[in-house]
Amino acid sequence: MQMNNSFKLLIIFLGGLLLLFIIAPLGGMFISTTAPDLFITIKDVEVTKSIRLTLFASLAATLFMAIGAIPLAYLLARKNFFFKKLVLGIVDLPIVIPHSAAGIALLGFLSRDSILGKAASSVGLNFVGNPLGIVAAMAFVSVPFLINAARDGFLSVPVRLEKTAMSLGASQARVFFTISIPLAGRNIVSGMVMMFARGLSEFGAIVIIAYHPMVTPVLIFERFGSYGLHYAQPVAVTFILITLLFFILLRYISGGKKNA
């Protein structure tokens, strides 16, 4: 498509402005954080502990939810049923509701007074003020990313391939594991990366269900509230760098399956 020059310039200008809006705050924060500040932060046990907790909790939430999310995505991609639109709406619900509200809802559901909370505490499990609560909050707010990406992946697998496999004698389970999942694999892994990333950044729901032990977003908020911007910035920069590193690594791993 040919664009005339002034229109092209206008598009570049508007696009550039938007990119600047994303880059400027982050760049400003990186510039105003000195290397000694960063070095001290990396050696701060409270920071490293919280980053470890955040990474672990988000990874656990992603892997645990994948067990149910992938079959649900397959069902939503392959079957038509009466309440399908309603189910699709429910899947997207965690994205649209305020995360603090999600935290309140989860707290009511998982607190020691609730049925589930009572059942869990009877076997020695507690969600409130516990890493389990963090995992639950992360899982709640980020699972739609995995379900939707996996569903798109399954939709892109021709039904005919699955039927061909069945005509060759394969059971539905074998078809699911040998045809559907490998062919939707890129989307599934991409969805897991997105879910993991979204889990890392969660604050609103976690701060309500488990202020302690502190995940990094909560720690950044704590440092800002108690000591001010200058103390919060190095933690934020360290966390962003580490999550970026993870993100690039995971993208690289999932990209490696391109030729599959």
Binding site: R160, T164, M166, L168
Partner: peptide, 20 residues
């Protein structure tokens, strides 16, 4: 009868070869 039990194989126009 289920597809798997029929003992009938089919070759589609687009061949439906498993790409992976």
């Amino acid at each position: 009868q289920a597809i798997q039990k029929r003992g009938i194989s089919m070759v589609f126009q687009d061949f439906s070869i498993f790409p992976h």
